[in-house]
Amino acid sequence: MLFSPAEWSAMKLSLWVSLLSVVIQLPFTAWLAWTLARRKVRFSAFIEAFCNLPQVLPPVVTGLLLLSLLGKHGLVGQYLYQWFGVVLPFSTAGVVVVSMVVSFPIMLGFFKSAFEMVDKSFEEAAQTLGYSRFRAVLKFTIPMSLPGLATGVVLAFARCLGEFGATITFAGNIQGSTQTIPLAVYAAFQSLGSEGAMWRLVLVSVVLSVSALLVTSYFKNRRQ
């Protein structure tokens, strides 16, 4: 076997967590991006600044803030535990939440500019061709903004794959449940005699990142 069971587990977890994070946040991010791009929203600058916080905050600070918010005794977390018995920190679900938080600004930014790039007037043109406003958006605006939307999804996915600081703070580094590729690399780096595992996972990270960049450049070229 090329990879050990622990390495496979880290890779599978990374891919699953990234996929879930992207899929779960997609509808809300698309809606918010659409709203910010097309509607007059009060305090839109403030909303955008808040949404972009995870991009500029030190990851460990994001992790700590999430702990104080969603931890078992956190502002929201205490109710999640009391009402539903859900404990997010140090769980796989917690890794998904962290990934969503850190990748959300990337997806939002790309989605918003993708929608802004398609002039509203195309929807008016589609309406004169027999489509309701909603169907005009589905039939023309979405396909026209698809390269930007796809780039946003791929880069958000790549961001989830690379997430480290906030995850280790909020979810720990538990093999099999919260240890993603970056955390496994870190663990291998810290333990003697694990150089082989470390470099194998580094290689996997590089391959995944390069693939993501190739996909985004494909969409970028399509847009041009």
Binding site: D119, S121, F122, E124, A125, A126, Q127, T128, L129, G130, Y131, S132, A136, F140, P143, M144
Partner: peptide
Amino acid sequence: VHHRKVGFCFQGYRLFPHLSVAKNIVA
């Protein structure tokens, strides 16, 4: 608008840039 049957050729045309000529005509 979508039930009015008013043909509108806009200034600047507003053709769908991701579609061919044929697909624009039957859009």
